[in-house]
Design a protein around this nucleic acid. Structure first.
Lengths: 201, 201
DNA sequence: GTACGATACGGACCAGCGGTCCGCTTCTTC
DNA sequence: GAAGAAGCGGACCGCTGGTCCGTATCGTAC
């Protein structure tokens, strides 16, 4: 039994729910959007929502991953500077920039995801993937120093609430923020840590 | 009218509540500790809790700030390497190390605080203070580059859930984590990585 | 010590949330 | 078109943060 195709109405409802959630999320802040709201906006029963996504954080995650999908694809097998053919030293900043842009474009969503504190963002395999990729690249640049921690730290610099604080609260313009992150990334890449006093670049 | 002294029973209850919350927080994870639990554990009515702290996040914040107080004091006017007399290049790593140690020692608390997503951690003046201090120090080291963002990024590397992920989930030993952060900090500061933190704490 | 306003207490109470349940409808399949 | 699987939806539940207000306690003036 390979798998049963999902029923037509099920897909329709699932799609409607995602769309409704996205719309609502763009309008008001996550904490005052209830599951009932989303159900109503989607023209669907509350039970349907839970059947389709398990629970609230399941819905958010599904939405988030759907939106992130293009980026993921571009990273996994796209052209430079995101794709695998790019040399590490250019790819790392490109990845972080892409991540930053994504969070800028989807602030509400990313924020809602991290707000779902059910499980820390660090336990998702989304995060796991990004971290592993970044770690590998760093290792290829700086040797086996503490690339693991550096990868965590760099990712932490693009966390949704920080981005929101800077772009939303403090009105830092998009391009300037990208520039700042790029500078910071360069400063980390510029003087590799760990064993080995290599200070190239 | 300077201010009325708080009543004796009020202070007693406030103290009891903080103690109870601390104890409970050390035992189970934040999300399954209710206000009623804390009230009961403190031998106090639920209303009293809300009168004293306003709401749930008020309680957590009060507890957090009380615990952080010694660190704040040591930073504001204590001896080197935390105090103001320390030259920036040593003080920055010392600050970050102190912050890391604090979060290691109070993981449950810090986690609970950030979990209270009512307002992002970035809007508190606690954060504001740390950030301003760090920014100034960085500026004195590297000139008026993007010290502002760098300060944010460095602080993000000590975020409670990341610390919890590494120390709690992945079982990275305390000293190693401190060392990794020190190395990373060094790499950001542009100097080759060298000695880790001096003595344990 | 007593009397009396101000302050704080505490637990019954409330509104609203995420999540479940189950009788009914709709789809798919043969 | 018949039958059973899959999905639907909204009444319902348990529980939480937060409020309310009659009652107990405190601080003070005498």
């Amino acid at each position: 039994m390979p798998e049963r195709a999902p029923r037509k109405d099920a897909v329709r409802n699932r799609t409607a729910a995602l769309a409704a959630a996205d719309t609502l999320l763009a309008q008001r802040s996550p904490e005052d959007i209830t599951m009932a709201d989303i159900a109503a906006a989607a023209g669907v029963g509350k039970g349907t929502l839970f059947r389709a996504f398990g629970d609230r954080s399941g819905l958010i995650r599904a939405l988030y991953e759907a939106r992130l999908e293009p980026v993921r694809a571009a990273v996994e097998d796209g052209p430079p500077p995101l794709g695998p053919a790019t040399p590490p030293l250019q790819r790392v900043p490109a990845l972080l920039d892409a991540l930053l842009c994504f969070k800028l474009d989807n602030r509400h969503l990313a924020l809602a995801l991290e707000g779902t504190a059910a499980d820390s963002p660090y336990r998702t395999d989304q995060y796991e993937r990004w971290h592993a990729l970044l770690r590998d690249l760093l290792e290829r640049i700086a040797g086996p120093g503490d690339s693991d921690f550096a990868a965590h730290a760099l990712l932490a610099a693009t966390r949704a609430d920080l981005v929101e604080h800077l772009a939303g609260e403090k009105r830092v313009p998009r391009e300037e923020l990208r520039h700042r992150l790029a500078d910071y990334t360069a400063s980390v890449l510029g003087s590799p840590a760990g064993s080995g006093p290599a200070a190239d670049r």
